[in-house]
Amino acid sequence: MMEIKAVNVRKQYQKEVALDDLTITLEGNKIIGLLGKNGAGKTTLMRLLAGHFSNSSGQLTIDNKSPFNNYPVLREVCLIMESNNFHEKFRVKDILNISANFYPNWDNEYANHLVNVFRLNINQKAKTLSKGMYSALGIIVGLASNASLTIFDEPYIGLDASFRSTFYDLLLETYQNNPRMIILSTHLIDEVSRLFEEVAILHEGKLMLHDTADNFERKHLILTGSKEEVDQLTSGRNIIHSSSIMGQKTVVLYNEDITDSGNLKVSKASLQELFVYLTKEEVNKNGTTNQI
């Protein structure tokens, strides 16, 4: 069982702070969504896990071992990024061969099957692949690696909606056949939110929220009704978003128990909407809080 533990992790590139005091624990064979705005530190976290560089301070461990320069840990980690995954000069088949050589649990048959699914030409060079096909190659390597920790960071640039859907099917398939921790970072939250068992949201280099997908759904509430009634019921509560029009007000609450909503209409937001409410800058400017 995989356990990732970050304690006060900080990563600084020259002047820019990418991760600032991140503390989070991820464990178990789950599909985990890692969300955050651009520059929130997602990619940095994932690259730290894959040993691309070391953190500036704090401790980051996978199963209690630091991944940096640690082969036994890293051969069980497969990170697929949106670009620059592979040597450009290589042909598709070379990349598959090399990956087969590296990952101890590589499934060759599955890889070949996936090549057919995505209609890749194995003799083509990586640099001549279209964006979509390059992404497909990354997806194939990630899925066939069977690495105990498989990480996809925006793996489908240029991939059309149909192939993306195929990817989700495949992700579930490989997860079921070979349960392992899969971290998926994406901006297309609506498309994948139902695949997540857990979700972590990073914001400005820190952990903003980490909970099960179920709890995200359970813990929030949208109340709509006349302005007075809404204000009365929600004053002093943890409001993450509010807007009003024509005397009607809509308020999104997080982590608040409202047992009697009176005449107000109660509804739910999607994970994507919640994400936007939690991280959008405007919320702060309006003076409403987004502290959880």
Partner: peptide, 11 residues
Amino acid sequence: FAKHYQINPAT
């Protein structure tokens, strides 16, 4: 179910 509806098996 997970496959048909593209949802997490745990759900």
